[in-house]
């Protein structure tokens, strides 16, 4: 394996971690803001659908906790921890599977679902990078 390839693969693994961290920050910051603002914005939309506040709070708690979990995974990916690389890779594989199955459901005419089919490539690529990362040395913290 050439040095250039090794460096490129290393960069791709870090980028996959950045993608996980993006999801983590979105869940921890934007999801609570969106869900907590929803009751205020609801009267602007027709028909008005009011979710019980308890549901919103539960969703916020779940989102924040899952965001923290993703943040922990992202840190593990950047430090090349085998366990978290494997969890991250599996997570991406599942995402690709769900997106792939979703795209089949949209195939009502020739071009439909083209977007979803292509989008499956991102989690698949990221999963490949993370699984490759399993063979790399651990980075000291």
């Amino acid at each position: 394996m050439t040095v250039t390839f090794r460096r490129a693969a290393d960069l791709c693994i870090d980028a996959s971690g950045l993608l996980v961290a993006a999801g983590a920050w979105t869940l921890m910051i934007w999801l609570p803001i969106y869900l907590l603002l929803e009751p205020l914005l609801q009267p602007l939309f027709q028909p008005v659908v009011r979710e019980p506040i308890l549901y919103l709070l539960a969703a916020v708690c779940f989102g924040v906790l899952f965001g923290l979990f993703l943040k922990w995974i992202a840190n593990g990916i950047w430090q090349r921890r085998k366990g978290r690389l494997a969890i991250g890779g599996t997570f991406y594989l599942f995402s690709a599977l769900i997106m792939g199955l979703g795209s089949f459901a949209q195939r009502s005419h020739p071009y439909a679902g083209a977007q979803a089919v292509w989008m499956v490539g991102i989690p698949l690529l990221a999963a490949g990078c993370l699984l490759f990362g399993l063979f790399q040395k651990r980075v000291p913290v």
């Binding site: 870090d14 961290a21 983590a24």
Partner: peptide, 19 residues
């Protein structure tokens, strides 16, 4: 600084502060 710290702060900047 550790690579993970810089990457984490970049994710925070781009996906939280920037939108």
């Amino acid at each position: 600084v550790p690579k993970s710290k810089a990457l984490s702060s970049f994710a925070f900047g781009i996906f939280v502060l920037f939108p």
